[in-house]
Design a protein around this nucleic acid. Sequence first.
DNA 1: CTCACATCCTGGATGC
DNA 2: TGCATCCAGGATGTGA
Length: 297
Amino acid sequence: MPELPEVETMRRGLEPAMEGARFTKVDVHRGDLRWPLAKDFARRLEGRTVTGLGRRAKYLLADLSSGDVLIMHLGMSGSFHVFQKNGDHADGQSPGNYYHRRSQHLAHDHVVFHMSSGATVTFNDPRRFGSMKIVARDKLDEEPLLRRLGPEPLGNAFDAAMLARACKGKKTSLKAALSDQRVVAGLGNIYVCEALHRARLSPKRLAASIADKTGAPNERAERLVAGIKAVLEDAIEAGGSSLRDHRRTDGELGMFQHRFRVYDREGAKCPTLGCRGTVRRIVQNGRSTFYCPLCQK
DNA sequence: CTCACATCCTGGATGC
DNA sequence: TGCATCCAGGATGTGA
């Protein structure tokens, strides 16, 4: 489930293969992703150079020499893999020969970028919840996919005051509020659970309770912002999380899943120092929530 | 406007 | 062993 740390890990893996390189050929094997790729999708990429590869929330943004931006989203099961022409990986490693042994064209490799760097970049997405879209750079501010996104959680602008203001008067749970990309952009089910545990806040707590009536932050808002930033930084440093067969662009596994404190750990002892609680699983808004009822209040 | 819930999709896990 | 059913969840659309 690619959330911000997994998308950022992807971005860093793609950068050496794509930045400064030209699309020599783009193959669309299946264009019916979350929404259909535009008919001129390949034509608008071929011959263009990637001048920069950025990220906004869970979106990857490739700046093109044409003045367009290629917007990419991994959805639930999307991933990018980088192959070098000679069959080696960009970093010269061969992680368990995992990808070397794979056939050239795997099932669910829906889009393939052939780059002038010699790299082949494949977009693989079994469930096809991911998608891509090309828009003009000077229209990016009006782009519906990006326009309503909240602040970047690792940016300086994201602080307790900002989060409290966004949660002011919200009758919904903290869990639901943090999952809302308009409140803060980039968290998903896993990191919301992990951030709430670090902040020792119950996922069931009313979102409005991190602010006073005027929308000013209280101590809970401070703890929550610290928890969000810390878990995202730790996860990025660990190369993201690998659940099921999700891997990094070089085929290596992220390591953060081994450091989950509550996610998918129902019945385990709460890892909070001195806490004697047990991790519980509940369902909120149709999604699993994992938390410790003892230390998360 | 806010909030809860259904929907899209597939592979893997589980149940009988 | 096979076959049916459930479950995972990001973003969006619908309806209360």
